[in-house]
Amino acid sequence: MTVFEKITLSKAINASLRASMEADPKVLVMGEDVGKLGGVFRVTDGLQKDFGEDRVIDTPLAESGIVGTAIGLALRGYRPVVEIQFDGFVFPAYDQIVTQLAKMHARALGKVKVPVVIRIPYAGGIGAVEHHSESPEALFAHVAGLKCVSPSNSSDAYWMLQQAIAGDDPVIYFEPKRRYHDKSRLDTEAIPYPLHKARVAQPGSDLTLAAYGPMVKVCLDVAKVAAEEGKSVEVVDLRSLSPIDFDTVQESVVKTGRLVVVHEAPVFLGTGAELAARITERCFYHLEAPVLRVGGFHAPYPPSRLEDEYLPGLDRVLDAVDRALAY
């Protein structure tokens, strides 16, 4: 198609859905308000007009019902792409996702496939009310049978969603809602990067920052500030949370000797904990400092007037960078 020098992440997702629906008539979009309204974030804007109500389905307001019927549609040969309106609203569907969607392929000894993609606008930073800013990715990555990914830029948003839809496994696709309006480059004719491979977003030599989704931009900003202070920070965009590409992180840490993992989700038992354990096991003799984590606290997501304090920002990440470098 074309190269967009500047396209928003949400428009890139829209283009991705459009491309998937054009490529495969079995691809459906379903969720609350995804049709006429185009979704509360307008990510599915115009799709129902172009593909019809039969393929872009406004559903009743029932998340378990949305995912449960998507499973049934998948068993019939369809490829439903489900939108959960906000992160905090996914839990009524959690049972269907964990007990049914994740396990059905295994339970059937491989004889059925359930290629359902669940799009969840997630994480904070938009001044929203309660239940609209959460980062529940670890709750899904912990479940065998699911794959979890989160893009940080428009190009990844475009390609990773199509790859998720084309695959035969259920995928939870976490959309960093505070980056919906961030613009970046997209070449729709490029050769796509592998879905579950991490990418070095910024090369460096003194310390590795590993992040994904909304925190990648924060980490890139950190790298800039650190560079002004004479510190060379490498930023790894994990992109995939199940599986996690430990090899790319390992390669980076072998080079830098230091790792700080950054995510919005609470630190306790989170992605950072898993990375700390694996990387310590793989790179024990290369580490100059313990693996540090910067993330949310063991607290409910706070009222929005406090979210700037709660969320890892430039200063909190720089603080961790300094602590790691001080060992």
Partner: peptide, 21 residues
Amino acid sequence: HLYTIVIGSQALHATGYAMGV
């Protein structure tokens, strides 16, 4: 379909399958 042990889950699968039909 396979036996479903979690109570009631399959009613939604049936409905989705019927939507596909």
